[in-house]
Amino acid sequence: MKVHVQFTLNGEPAEFLAEPRQTLLECLRDNLNLTGTKEGCGDGNCGSCSVLLDGQLVTSCLVLGVETQGQRVDTVEGIAKGSTLHPIQKAFIDHAALQCGICTPGFLMATKALLDHEPNPTEPQIRLWLANNLCRCTGYDKIVRAVQAAAAEMRA
């Protein structure tokens, strides 16, 4: 028995059919073909699958697809405005904040959640907000710097 789910995806009305046991991550990747959201662990411990659910940062592997009925979901595919990159995306490229890039969509969403909440975060605040996202390549230094640069750019 599949469930018909209607929700707002990256600002547009959208719908999909979900098996009740499917996670939001599976629904995004398999049913809606939005593969920008990544799976690193499937049990809530790496943050690669981070998306915003009604503006809240969640790990989509721990949310059921059917739970998003009538809600707003924002993913990495929706950050850029048309062909213009968001300042966070640009800062990640300019500050070499990605190496392999598999963690990047999750970090971008976590950064967006942070800067929506606190436009001028301190370094400890940044590290705390990003602590649910694992990056094995960068050692976090350049990610933290990119977040600082993006915050400055967005405040300007």
């Binding site: 593969t35 959201t37 993913t75 990495v76 990159l85 995306q89 990605l98 890039g101």
Partner: peptide
């Protein structure tokens, strides 16, 4: 200089194995 695959990797368009 910025990396050539930068835009693809910050927009979720880059195709990894599972994609």
């Amino acid at each position: 200089p910025p990396r050539h695959d930068g835009a693809d990797k910050v927009t979720g368009r880059a195709l990894y194995g599972a994609d």
